[in-house]
Design a protein around this nucleic acid. Sequence first.
DNA 1: ATAAAAAACGCAACCAAGTTGCATTTATTT
DNA 2: AAATAAATGCAACTTGGTTGCGTTTTTTAT
Lengths: 147, 147
Amino acid sequence: MNSKTHNHLDIGSILSEKGISRTNFRTKLVNYFYSSNKSLSVDDILKYFNNSINKVTVYRSLVSFENNGLIHKVPDTNNLMRYSLCRKEECSPISHNHNHGHFICYSCNQTFCLEGVKYPEIISMKGFYVKEFKLTAEGYCKECYKN
Amino acid sequence: MNSKTHNHLDIGSILSEKGISRTNFRTKLVNYFYSSNKSLSVDDILKYFNNSINKVTVYRSLVSFENNGLIHKVPDTNNLMRYSLCRKEECSPISHNHNHGHFICYSCNQTFCLEGVKYPEIISMKGFYVKEFKLTAEGYCKECYKN
DNA sequence: ATAAAAAACGCAACCAAGTTGCATTTATTT
DNA sequence: AAATAAATGCAACTTGGTTGCGTTTTTTAT
Ligand SMILES: [Mn+2]
Ligand SMILES: [Mn+2]
Ligand SMILES: [Zn+2]
Ligand SMILES: [Zn+2]
């Protein structure tokens, strides 16, 4: 078990550590995030729980997770929101630091953070005062392109 | 009057040239695009026409304009669609070629095409097969930042 | 210029994603 | 264990956008 793998106990304590209430649903939800390694839409989550949970609860849990530095938003090209686990190095309950784009695979839905290029710098060089930006790319990842 | 300025007659013939029906509303709409030099949301357009036009008509006109290479979509960071005139060099009734991002000013709503960087190449270098992508930046343009 | 064909328009109804208020249940603090 | 705070479910609502269909306007063919 490497350092990036978490068992149930670990994940439960992640919630506590981040100051998120350790409810039944939220524990299962954070487990879903860790086990799927994909960006999740609200619809993904509702289906995963067989619509046994109210969508309002899902939205509010996601807001809480985001505010506490556990996940971040990943908009896709169809104006639909997805959510993806934050990396420890970048995010904390205090602030997010996602100055990079995301790639989403049509086939496997995995989400890749595009760290290589720091977009805000590129843009501010042109004389714009940038407050927000987002880059999303979609297509097929290496693995899925083979098949 | 430079080459980028169009009077009413010019704009009317733009519609015909592109194969778009020359209706009363569409003529006024394309004029609005040319005179405002901003990206327009459906809401902007409805307000401009004092809600005298049906929103369905607005949406269908925009689809037609887009299909005929007259305008292109500019998504903002709040998952709202905006629309902006295409440049002749890039777009035709046959195909759009917007492989660049956009900057939208919070204050004046002007839209700037960010031509400098060709994003798809950057991403495909990393081994992804990119089918779609978008970059949007928002903030304040040079002019508005001064004030 | 006129008639036929095609496209645009308005209306009403609908959809999907997301939000809000409030009463009830569950978790955390003391 | 009691008091307090937070999470949940429900119903109702909002916003951005879509669909079907009958009527009007524009385009095309004669
Ligand atoms: Mn990321
Ligand atoms: Mn552009
Ligand atoms: Zn894939
Ligand atoms: Zn500006």
